[in-house]
Design a binder for these strands. Sequence first.
DNA 1: TAAATAAATACAATTTTCAAAATATTTTTA
DNA 2: TAAAAATATTTTGAAAATTGTATTTATTTA
Lengths: 400, 400
Amino acid sequence: MKKTGGLKLMQEINQYIILKTIREKGPISRSDIAKMTKLSPTTVTSAVNGLLNEGIVTVGGIGESSGGRKPVYVEFAPDSKYIIGVSITNSCIGIGKVNMDAQVKEKKMYPGDFQKSANAISYTLDRISDYIAECEDLSLCLGISIITPGIVDAKKGIIRNNAKLHLTNVPLKEMAEERFGLKVWIDNDANAIALAENKYGKYGSRKNLIYIQMGDGIGSGIVFEDSIFRGSHGGAGEFGHISIDKNGILCECGNRGCLENYVSWPSIYNRILDHLEKGSPTTMVSHKNSKTLDISQNDFLKALHQNDELAISVLEEPVEYMANGIVSLVNLFNPDVILIGWGSLDKDSYFITRVREKVKELAFDIFTDGLEIQPTTLGGDFQLKGAASVALEEIFEVPL
Amino acid sequence: MKKTGGLKLMQEINQYIILKTIREKGPISRSDIAKMTKLSPTTVTSAVNGLLNEGIVTVGGIGESSGGRKPVYVEFAPDSKYIIGVSITNSCIGIGKVNMDAQVKEKKMYPGDFQKSANAISYTLDRISDYIAECEDLSLCLGISIITPGIVDAKKGIIRNNAKLHLTNVPLKEMAEERFGLKVWIDNDANAIALAENKYGKYGSRKNLIYIQMGDGIGSGIVFEDSIFRGSHGGAGEFGHISIDKNGILCECGNRGCLENYVSWPSIYNRILDHLEKGSPTTMVSHKNSKTLDISQNDFLKALHQNDELAISVLEEPVEYMANGIVSLVNLFNPDVILIGWGSLDKDSYFITRVREKVKELAFDIFTDGLEIQPTTLGGDFQLKGAASVALEEIFEVPL
DNA sequence: TAAATAAATACAATTTTCAAAATATTTTTA
DNA sequence: TAAAAATATTTTGAAAATTGTATTTATTTA
């Protein structure tokens, strides 16, 4: 509790309730808002007037009469303000304008190998600076939301650790706020994307969601009761480092049998090479140059979706491991939805179908009944949507 | 949001803030409350009068003057009302009066083997009925809080599943509320005890806590940001069934290598028998009758605390497995505290010391820095304290 | 065209907070 | 020892936002 109960708080709460109703149910008439919220017409009118003045809602036409004066609809105006979303990855900085419905309106990409250069942060801040310089309507900007892999203390605004980008205890929020004079949010990418899936994705109605991010490593974002589960230092969700084989491969983290060593892209890539060497048939490449080959994740997934024999056989073991890891996840978190983010992974591909089967087989029925295991649903702009979600979550939160 | 912002809500919020201040900081003068909460003296006086009328706070003497009128202290009166706490286990029903500080004021135990009789619920309800009949001050009773192992949907008040007590979808909350006309809470035991540790235990200042319950099986309760993490169907925290060895022992749940098969009491007991057969030296028993032996968990722990050779060597492997499981837990939840509930387990015993070491060794430093791994701190009444905590949590929650 | 219905606004009543003043009590100090 | 200063609590009156009711506005229906 930050605030004590005063008239102002009371007004803020009502305005929050009304805005929420308009966002979810709009276009809607003032009269219907009053009925739904059980607030008096007077209160609704005055709050709506406030919101209209702010520009955050607009009048959206006139409805049909049901035997009296026609209702005037008001609706949420998601484009009236925007967030500058920023996504830092190992190989690319993305910056863009995102509206209040987490729709990406404009996007710029700056590729680069930040794993080597070790100046990802200063480079990012410079690009943001350029971007801001070109914004004509900065007064409508609600702030900058930055997401990055690694362990992020979102509350304090510090990147605790990111081994690949060589970052330790970077107070990015403070740095950016000082430099740009705008509100800044930072968070872990998987957390942010999980939140975006929860708020704006296809399975958004489910309260408890886990997003598993596959790539060079394996991370996850956990959303519980519609808000991010961060743990004590923002480090929750290191799914790649749960051990599923006590006597397995020694991981660079010091433990043995970490999931990451069996199902990350590098490990799968090595399996592909092994199989190719053995001369397994595949549509992915002609065999002659298989040694010098550089197969991308999307090439591989494309082959998988065409039921390429090699792609499937390569995944046989990883699928087992992944399912095993997910079973532990299910037993610990009891989620409604698990979304797997791996490029263009298809919902009917061997990978996810088999994982689904295996999880169903191994976990308690009571946990798997109604559990969805699906690919992500946000589409190409998932990172910037994620970034924006973190900001929007706070902007539209209950005023307390 | 259940309520809209009205004068009543505003008053409730302020009363909540003031009561919370008195509970945490009391005995305290009205004047100091006003300073701490930044509420006006008027508001404080009127709210305190309300609380005094309710009987939930009392005047607690007069303080020393610091150059003016002496302050009149008000303080929380935890004994002014009570909760009937009920704990159902496989072998015992416990019923007792618990005050508003989760102190157990009175306790009755009803032993029995409910795993066989299959009527644990009706037996429990009958005992509660008896208990209530003897309560003279039922008007001061805030309700009945029941905890039990198994998967419990606390929100809906249904015991979803408890294999050992043969329970499926028992609407216990409704049943009890109808029969007794009192407010009833039900929850999973590990969840409840975790909450009690968080609210009333030694490590209560930490926001994120995991309680691991060792016994016939292994369960856990997760408290995140000071409230229970239940998952979708109340099933979160099935720590005993995370797999730490993909190719390990086949578990009755269908999976392989579940933690429960390596560190639960039955599995440890079997190890003891094995060792005894081999003639390992021990202070636990004379060897002659080792075959027909019935060693209790507390006998074993007592021996362990005396550094009995056999006890230690029996635990060597379980410790490894437990540490491994905890590492996964730490990587997923990033908690501040992990508390292990296993009888009278000593904080310096081989078991916990070694687990601590091993976890420190295998998990990320950033997660283990400041992480406490300790035995439980609630003492003998932990179950009833747990039950009461669930009720108190709701009784004292923010009014929204 | 008048009556009925519905949406939106205006107004008075209510309630609770807050600020300031009043009152009560105690210590300090002249 | 009495007046002044300090602190705690209560009283008083003004301010603010809600609610319910009444009113205005707009539209349909008879």
